[in-house]
């Protein structure tokens, strides 16, 4: 098995997504991998808040400092689409991730139901391993 080189982690600004980013940073530090923080721009975000991605990138910079990970190993990728589709595409170039990481529930997911769950959809459709980080477990 080839070593883990690039981890893609979904980030929508939610607390669960922050937990997933922290977990991905910690794993990357341990195995020497790069992290690509992936943000999906949907229909409503494109229309209502075209600066949202910039604000989120600033949050990722803060999380990078807090984690003490080399900033050169952290990359920011914005893709058009729903979170699930954008993360599925992250397996291919230019991101070319060999592991996908998501929080247990992002924005818009409905508690207790599989329908609308990015993590569930990813687990079903992704062609690389998927890690779902439960809130509160990111440091473990």
């Amino acid at each position: 098995m080839s070593p883990l080189q690039k981890i893609a982690v979904g980030f929508d600004g939610s607390g669960d997504a922050e937990a997933a980013v922290r977990w991905a940073f910690e794993l990357a530090r341990q195995v020497g991998a790069d992290v690509v923080v992936v943000h999906a721009v949907g229909l409503l975000e494109y229309a209502a808040n075209r600066g949202a991605a910039v604000e989120l990138e600033q949050t990722v910079e803060r999380l990078t400092r807090e984690a003490g990970i080399d900033p050169a190993r952290v990359h920011w990728h914005v893709g058009d689409g729903d979170p699930c589709s954008v993360l599925i595409r992250a397996v291919f170039a230019p991101v070319a991730a060999d592991l996908l990481v998501v929080g247990s529930r992002g924005q818009g997911a409905h508690a207790g139901l599989l329908l609308g769950s990015t993590s569930h959809e990813l687990a079903e459709h992704a062609t690389v391993p998927v890690v779902i980080v439960p809130t509160g477990r990111e440091g473990q």
């Binding site: 929508d12 949907g42 992002g106 818009g108 409905h110 329908l115 609308g116 990015t118």
Partner: peptide
């Protein structure tokens, strides 16, 4: 399976399916 799940989701009152939908 998707049709059944969507019907049940609506019957339970609905909600957000993704950030847009």
């Amino acid at each position: 399976a998707y049709l059944d799940e969507l019907a049940a989701f609506c019957q339970a009152g609905g909600g957000q399916l993704d950030p847009d939908t």
